[in-house]
Design a protein around this nucleic acid. Structure first.
Lengths: 223, 223
DNA sequence: GACTTTAGTCACACAAAGTGACTAATTCGC
DNA sequence: GCGAATTAGTCACTTTGTGTGACTAAAGTC
């Protein structure tokens, strides 16, 4: 605990900016300034007095001109090797961007999260961890709502959940669970999407404060 | 993203070492070398080529002479102020120590997690986040098992869960859920604890690989 | 106007969880 | 030695939650 390191321990803040493009998730990458063939996550070295979260928000603003609707830390990533700048650790954040508001700055492009260009191993790990974090906090935080515009149909909401979970959901079950959670308020508007019955619009407006009072659950198998 | 910082962005790795003492959780704190009245978390600056997790494990070994039975990252903590050494960010890890094996080195002491001595705000935040992380990954990882000795009774296991969750559990429900998860194997040993029927001993040995196939869940209220 | 398409709801079956009461095996007090 | 107390372990019943197919509703298409 007292040994001096052989070099300073430096870090950056990296942002995994996520949006829903059509029916897949996409992340924002920026072209490397040195090697224009390669891509990397937007990043930043925090200024004096700047919190980590603020640095992540600023990184996002620099990349798309908007603050994310949701920012959450993924963790610190270090593998003993250096990468962007001289840093040997990157503190990664996910930021959610509703796709409507997203107009990337020059040099920045959305890539399907399932099929990105080659990335440095550490950045690759951060992207993987970001999608995993989103999936696992999907039932703990309004992730899906933050990827949608302010008003949406229940079918759109369900599709967003299906996209994030990577599986189909049964309509009746989805709506029953949503009703029970009191997260959504119907508006007096309907939207006709061409064919089919028009859908009612809803907005995110959580109401109740009754916690479900569950017991234990053992949802793991191997250490 | 290109601005130079006004000073180098430095970090440490801090360890929140947790054990179960009697019927409360405890964390290991070390007396400050400068101000002997104050306490802080054990920490370390990673050496070149050392991963973050390895640094956390080493920190634990320096503090209690044993490797933790479980190590997990909590996150990176920075508030714009510096603290241990010159670092403005601490990467925090939880490490679990079964209480039997724990014999702290000189200057190190266990404190009840609910009632620690005054700590620096950042360290306080790390301790709070550690217990929150433990609670929320309790159903995802064998946290409780890693705080117990290799063999244990089901009552001890249930008490550990109650301690970590901060609430009582119903015996029959607990055992039913445990059975369904195939996490535990009975041994041919019994232990008599003075009064009452002797309890059978079990060990952690996860068996099945059937994932429960749940739908969506909305377990949050406010953003 | 029949057919297709999407929205929205219902009702039933089945699975999971909460709960109190029961049996079992030991120690303690007398 | 024997009944009360104590802890372990199980059972059966009730309540709640989830999976699922079938249904009605309102629009467009031909």
């Amino acid at each position: 605990m007292r040994e001096r390191p052989s070099r300073p321990a430096l870090y950056t803040v990296d942002a995994v900016l996520v949006t829903a493009m059509g029916n897949e998730l996409a992340i924002l990458l920026v072209r490397n300034s040195s090697d224009r063939e390669r891509w990397s996550l937007p990043w930043r070295i925090p200024q004096t007095g700047e919190t980590l979260e603020a640095a992540a928000a600023t990184t996002a603003k620099d990349a798309i001109g908007e603050l994310p609707t949701w920012v959450e830390q993924i963790g610190a990533f270090g593998d003993g090797k250096r990468h962007p700048s001289e840093a040997d650790v990157s503190v990664a954040y996910v930021g959610l961007i509703p796709h409507q508001t997203a107009s990337p700055r020059a040099g920045h492009t959305w890539f399907p999260v399932a099929n990105p260009p080659p990335l440095a191993p550490r950045q690759r790990a951060m992207v993987d961890a970001a999608t995993k974090t989103l999936q696992s906090s999907l039932d703990q935080a309004p992730i899906a709502f933050r990827l949608l515009p302010a008003t949406f149909t229940l079918s759109e909401l369900q599709q967003m959940y299906e996209l994030l979970l990577g599986k189909r959901l049964h309509k009746a079950s989805f709506r029953r669970a949503l009703q029970a959670a009191w997260l959504v308020e119907p508006m007096d508007e309907w939207r006709s999407e061409g064919r089919g019955r028009p859908a009612q619009l809803f907005r995110y407006l959580p109401k109740k404060k009754r916690r479900p009072h569950r017991g234990v659950r053992f949802d793991f198998l191997y250490p």
